[in-house]
Design a protein around this nucleic acid. Structure first.
Lengths: 342, 342
DNA sequence: TTGTAGGCGTTATCAA
DNA sequence: TTGATAACGCCTACAA
């Protein structure tokens, strides 16, 4: 039933020919335009022809003619971080539902500026920048596209952020309430806003409570499991042991917890550890990780939704959304400071 | 220095005009075609003009004209699985280096067939199918594209696989050598080839050693952390406790280990657990997970390389590559079967 | 309600 | 060595 032209793909011309209508008419029907007023018979003939021939529209051609690619780019630091994967999944679902494809750009594969160039050349309709300092990117490159920043507030571009400051505060308050005063912090040396704010909220809250963070208890390391492990090793080696430590994300915290175990410490008796993100695995390490829950899926989904609004111009002024709320999830890796009966 | 036409993007026409050459000539220069014989002066003028105007080629237009999009699709079961994320990262790097973009399609977002339709409409040059039964997809849809299967051998499509059978065998042999005879298996009910082979290799090796797997020690669950946890819970509740368990992937194993801990068991004294994949976190749970290491990055990278070869027609007959080797990584979650002094 | 004509930005094929 | 001219497949006027 399909006289498939050998090799050549079926185009809308073929459909039109088979239906005995002009090509634009076929286009009108197939793109089922709202204001397309086509006779019922004609429409049906076109649809039948399309089905018979197995017609599949060519999005590339459509993109060229409409100057819209129905594609988004998402630039992320590292998809192997479960938190990032969640953000991406959230965004992908929203995009897919709206008929957009997602081009994945991993910062660990090549730098963001390069990725951006590629995306622009592909005429993407918009780009999601996750934890990438937009300021670090070429302003000229960013000028032509719709941009939504994830977790990186800016008054130049719209974005969706989580309440990173509150995350740090919650961690600090939790530890203070448990009686801790000898406290350490482990986080990456970065200009990623969310990390800086987590740190700032944490440190400020401690300071307000009259607790200071000694400089040798302020550890910089990559935001990875091994980074957390190494930082904790250094921490335990170089200084009087703190009674509690806040890690800037769960991966670091998991590494830190592991290192404590290796060092023969028992948590939370000897040391309390608090993470941040609440990735699924936080519940599966031993002891279960106390952490700050950040709504990753929601973050990605909202960012994608905002970007789509921008693209479809359904939003002119950007609603400066409030940061997504975060919350403490107290589990077993943190506990009361032991009474110093020494 | 850039008289940017307001709004309109810079096209190759603009470049040609500024350089005082015809548009096709500009194209010849800019696409620096190997057989492009252009006068040095002309070439330079074109290049200068392009730089001055900040010209960026329109990949969409090029795709339409060349009938190649320089884009790949990758359909994966769930990017939140660290193993999958590794595969994707490996593929993305290879693709990016070759100038290809990657469209991420997550099976957990919508079904593979749908994803495939979208990819085809976008004229992708090829698709990577990770742990997706190609047999389940419309043959007609698959007919027009270059396809490479990841971990899903088929004599219809080329692919790269890991030695899943050996993975199961290694796990079994390891446990047998430790003296275990009361053994359980936890894995997903799936037709994903790699999972089936891991299971088959495991069960067969046990059988050859005269060890049988009781049916109530054969647990089905989703290949996730919570799946592993639930399966282990059921296992511990319903039957005389085995002395060892093999989980079809590390996520399940981590869930299982956790459940053992919750149930008050001590590993590996009370129970040995072996996982599969060797994701980074396997080293960070307590006790550190004994597992079978699968080269995820390499898997993704090779698959991408093969796909590119197919696309560029540099390979006509597909080299039936040997499966990637796997190896046992013995850590602390498995140990000698305790002497039954009961 | 439908068909004609033109354009989207490139690359490819020819003459000149 | 270069410049017309024609695709590529679709969409959007506008005219019939």
């Amino acid at each position: 039933m399909c006289p498939l032209p050998p090799g050549r793909r079926v185009t809308i011309h073929d459909v039109a020919a088979r239906a005995g209508v002009s090509q634009p008419t076929a286009s009108l029907v197939l793109s089922n335009h709202p204001r397309a007023r086509v006779a019922v018979g004609t429409r049906q003939r076109v649809l039948d022809a399309a089905t018979d021939l197995g017609y599949r529209p060519n999005v590339v051609a459509r993109s060229l003619s409409q100057r819209r690619s129905y594609a988004l780019g998402i630039i992320v630091p590292d998809i192997r971080n479960p938190f990032v994967a969640d953000v991406v999944t959230g965004a992908e679902r929203v995009a897919a539902d709206a008929g957009y494809a997602v081009l994945l750009c991993d910062h660990s594969v090549r730098d963001a500026q390069k990725h951006l160039e590629v995306l622009l050349a592909r005429q993407i309709d918009g780009v999601l920048l996750d934890a990438v300092g937009a300021a670090a990117l070429s302003q000229q490159a960013l000028a032509g596209v719709n941009v939504v920043l994830i977790d990186e507030p800016s008054d130049q571009w719209p974005g969706i952020a989580t309440d990173a400051l509150a995350a740090g505060e919650l961690a600090a308050r939790h530890l203070l309430e448990l009686g801790h005063r000898d406290i350490a912090f482990i986080g990456p040396a970065t200009d990623v806003h969310a990390f800086r704010m987590r740190e700032r909220g944490f440190v400020r809250t401690l300071r307000e409570a009259g607790v200071s963070l000694e400089s040798d208890r302020w550890r910089r390391a990559p935001a990875t499991v091994s980074g957390g492990r190494d930082a904790m090793r250094a921490l335990l080696a170089s200084t009087a042991r703190p009674t509690a430590t806040f890690c800037a994300n769960d991966l670091m915290a998991i590494g830190a917890v592991k290192q404590c175990f290796t060092a023969g410490l028992e948590l939370p008796r000897d040391l309390s550890v608090v993470g941040c993100d609440d990735i699924e695995l936080a519940r599966y390490v031993t002891p279960e990780l106390t952490t700050i829950s950040i709504p990753a899926r929601e973050l990605g989904a909202r960012a994608a939704r905002l970007l789509l609004q921008l693209i479809e111009r359904s939003t002119h002024r950007v609603p400066t959304a409030r940061p997504l709320p975060v919350r403490l999830v107290a589990r077993a890796s943190s506990g009361r400071v032991p009474s110093r009966s020494a």
